[in-house]
Design a protein around this nucleic acid. Structure first.
Length: 419
DNA sequence: TCTGGGGTCCTAGGACCC
DNA sequence: TCTGGGGTCCTAGGACCC
């Protein structure tokens, strides 16, 4: 059996742990830059605050309803996540951490009663040790466990936020009651495609012929169909800390149209991304960059220019990476247009330890030493004290975070005082 | 004035190879 | 008159997830 363990309203719950006076009160957590809503407590949901709501449009509603607003505090959420995951891992080693607030667990060789009991114990222990409420869905496949989790959440109360799809009748009922768009792996495009052929529920979906699904939704769609039928096609994915791509992307405070300004931003993004690369001891051999217009401006021409290029050799030097990124940028830059967001994505990541030497490679040993020194200075005196000349010397970027909570669990200066 | 950011996987088509 | 068949690798773009 597979279990999907999911923290309820995770970011909002993290804030609540340290401000228990907010229990039963509406809470929202905003994205970076206080842009839009990315987490809501149940109370905020029932006041009609949608996911992704732009904060500036809902300001009045927040005030009128006394909704507590938080800027995102990812340091806190990341630390709380680690705590929750390590508790779950004490119950079973067969765990896949799927996202910051979700984990799949596979139970093998246990009777159903034992599994049920373990799930309940996990819920209790996580609550007791961290204060985070979680829900568990249990079923024979990962996709069905996702469905079961939705049901658990929908009908949860203090003692019961657990649901098991363990009988054929429950299986059919669950699929009949779930909208096609709420199924894991069905996004906007697939929903439209499916509605066109009259598929509204999960049950309608599994009655489609396999070859139609394969043709229209690729192998991913077909695997999903099998999963929903109860035939496992997805297994627990072993933990791999090394990423396959590393991105640094940001919206600008105001639109930018000059090439020089874009060069400054892309250089800064490249420096930040290269540092992430060095932190995981990798190098990259491909770089992709993009610049795009503001999609929210009405009647605005929409454009998104991007370009990917292979580096002549693998590197994690901020200097090489930013130089190459600027080369790409110059090729996609269109004069006279304005841009609201840009990003750099490093790809083709390989371990630093097995560096493949290239015939055309320049001597990068100097860079290696230089980067080491820069990283050491950063560690000692704070981030980005030493910069490339093409970066803005005054700032990395501004982030608006008006309602940031404390780092209760990661900074000794900010722990709660109890009197 | 104001609308995150960071990932994964798959496919089609082009450019090669023998 | 008449021009095969089977591959690989790379890139751009699409779709999805949290």
């Amino acid at each position: 059996m597979f279990a999907l363990i999911d923290c309820n309203n995770f970011y909002a719950s993290c804030e609540r742990v340290f401000q228990p006076n907010l229990i039963d009160k509406p809470i929202v957590v905003l994205s970076n830059n206080d842009g839009c809503v990315i987490a809501r407590s149940d109370e905020a949901k029932s006041l009609g605050i949608p996911m992704g709501a732009p904060a500036f449009k809902y300001k009045k509603k927040f005030e009128d309803n006394k909704i507590e607003v938080f800027s995102s505090n990812f340091k806190l959420y990341g630390d709380m996540s680690n705590r929750v995951m390590s508790i779950i891992a004490q119950f079973t080693p067969n765990i896949e951490i799927y996202s910051i607030d979700e984990a799949f667990v596979k139970f093998e060789g246990f009777s159903e009663d034992i599994i049920d009991q373990k799930c309940r114990e996990i819920i209790e222990t996580v609550m007791k040790w961290t204060g985070i409420p979680i829900s568990i869905g249990l079923a024979e496949t990962k996709s069905l466990a996702k469905v079961a989790n939705r049901i658990a959440k929908k009908y949860s109360n203090e003692t019961r936020s657990f649901y098991s799809i363990n009988k054929n009748s429950k299986h059919i009922k669950a699929l009949k009651n779930i909208n096609i768009k709420d199924i894991w792996g069905i996004g906007l495009k697939n929903e439209k495609k499916l509605l066109k052929v009259g598929v509204k529920s999960g049950f309608d979906f599994i009655r489609l012929p396999d070859n139609w699904v394969k043709r229209n939704m690729s192998i991913i769609g077909l695997k999903l169909k099998k999963e929903l039928e109860g035939i496992p096609t997805l297994d627990i994915v072993e933990e791999n800390n090394n990423k396959k791509s590393i991105a640094t992307t940001r919206s600008f405070e105001a639109e930018i149209s000059s090439l020089d300004d874009l060069i400054e931003r892309i250089t800064t993004f490249a420096v930040v991304a290269s540092k992430k690369l060095r932190t995981q001891n990798s190098e990259c051999n491909m770089i992709s960059i993009y610049i795009r217009s503001n999609p929210f401006k009405e009647n605005n021409e929409r454009y998104h220019f991007s370009l990917t290029g292979a580096l002549p050799f693998s590197t994690n030097s901020s200097i090489e990476i930013s130089k190459f990124a600027i080369k790409l940028l110059k090729k996609i830059y269109h004069k006279g247009k304005s841009y609201k967001k840009a990003g750099i994505i490093l790809m083709g990541l390989t371990p630093e330890s097995i560096h493949q030497v290239s015939f055309f490679e320049k001597d990068t040993k100097k860079h290696k030493k230089l980067m080491e020194s820069i990283d050491n200075i950063d560690n000692k005196y704070g981030l980005y004290k030493v910069r490339l000349a093409s970066q803005d010397q005054k700032r990395i970027w501004k982030m608006n975070r008006q309602n940031l909570s404390r780092n209760y669990t990661t900074n000794i200066e900010e722990v709660l005082l109890v009197s």
